[in-house]
């Protein structure tokens, strides 16, 4: 929390002075959830704190988590991307089709997997670049651009799948399963990649010119422009980075069930945005916190996990509990900001 303070925009100083709840809010919420889970698990002999449950929760957080790290940059720079869920579904469909169609000609399975990964990353880059181009060069509102591409990618995956499900060839499925389920014991690959992306994201946000430019643009685009920040290029880069990370998330997603359908990734965009905001990033831009986003993602996954471990709450109310906790987590850290 030090270091970059001198060069960061004005806002940093303000948030620094109310370090307490603003910083502690999400951590407190996460700690409360962990306590709650442990308590519930003690009453009904389930295994909340077991390595396998923790591994499950962290692995399943990885998709949204990796995307949410990218989303943190987009939102910090005053943008928004609603298309990520559909984009993930579309890329998953593309990867499956690519690998299936090459399965006959390319013998080596590792080679095929590499081709699949390459397809995912390049499709993500391209999709992110399209969003970025429309937002920066065409000067269309990010909300509208990504609402449009959200519909486009969702329809494309439905069309590719003929309304049904795209499934990976069975032999390939066994070959790539370890990408999601494998790793070092409970430390599975999705957890490792998520951790790597999160640490890298935090460093980029705090220690690089790019991170500071994002905050500057989100804070006041005009001032950033006068300070000779290449606003369009930075903004473009945030969307491309997010697209790339959607590609990474898809690489981890496809091996889990080996399929993609029109319901893949539904509402991921809202979960990712919610995680970013719970973590303390400002929705209208200007201030971003990658580690907060990681905590936000964990809070969201833990709510679902805990609700599945208990019968105390009617499953009809799951959404309501989630809503309450999301709002509480944000209230906790906003309290002192009221009036500023």
């Amino acid at each position: 929390m030090t270091g970059a303070a001198a060069t960061a925009p004005q806002r940093r100083d303000r948030s620094h002075s109310l370090l307490d709840l603003h910083v502690l809010g999400p951590i407190l919420a996460l700690a409360a959830l962990i306590l709650l889970g442990t308590g519930i698990s003690a009453t009904n002999e389930s295994t909340f704190l077991s390595a396998s449950n923790i591994s499950n929760v962290l692995s399943r957080s990885a998709f949204i988590g990796i995307i949410a790290v990218g989303m943190t940059f987009v939102i910090t720079a005053g943008g928004l991307d609603l298309s990520v869920g559909s984009m993930a579904a579309f890329i998953a469909g593309l990867v499956i089709l690519t690998m299936n169609s090459l399965a006959g000609t390319v013998e080596s399975v590792p080679m095929l997997v590499l081709v699949g990964m390459g397809a995912a990353l390049s499709a993500g880059l391209a999709a992110g670049a399209i969003n970025g181009f429309l937002v920066t060069n065409m000067r269309i509102e990010a909300f509208i651009v990504t609402l449009g591409t959200m519909g486009i990618y969702r329809s494309l995956v439905t069309w590719l799948a003929d309304g049904g499900t795209l499934s990976l060839d069975f032999t390939l499925r066994t070959a790539i399963r370890p990408i999601y389920f494998g790793g070092f014991g409970w430390l599975t690959w999705p957890i490792i990649v998520f951790a790597f992306v999160a640490v890298l994201g935090e460093l980029v946000m705090r220690r690089t010119a790019f991170g500071r430019y994002c905050a500057a643009i989100g804070s006041n685009e005009q001032v950033a422009r006068y300070s000779s920040v290449n606003v369009n290029r930075v903004r473009m880069a945030t969307y491309v980075l997010l697209g790339l990370l959607v590609g990474v998330a898809t690489i981890l997603y496809v091996p889990r069930l080996g399929s993609a359908s029109p319901t893949t990734g539904v509402l991921w965009e809202l979960e990712a945005i919610a995680a970013v905001i719970i973590g303390g990033t400002v929705l209208k831009g200007g201030f971003g916190r990658v580690w907060g986003t990681v905590i936000g993602v964990l809070i969201l996954s833990l709510i679902g996990n805990i609700l599945n471990l208990t019968d105390a709450v009617s499953p009809y109310l799951n959404g309501a509990i989630q809503g309450v906790i999301i709002i509480l987590a944000v209230v906790l850290q906003r309290e002192k900001k009221a009036g500023t």
Binding site: N44, S261, N305, N308, L309
Partner: peptide, 17 residues
């Protein structure tokens, strides 16, 4: 009626029982 949701729910059922 969703693969991803049911995967998650089942993982948690397996942890619980």
């Amino acid at each position: 009626w969703n693969r991803d949701d049911s995967f998650t729910v089942m993982q948690d059922f397996l942890s619980r029982y």
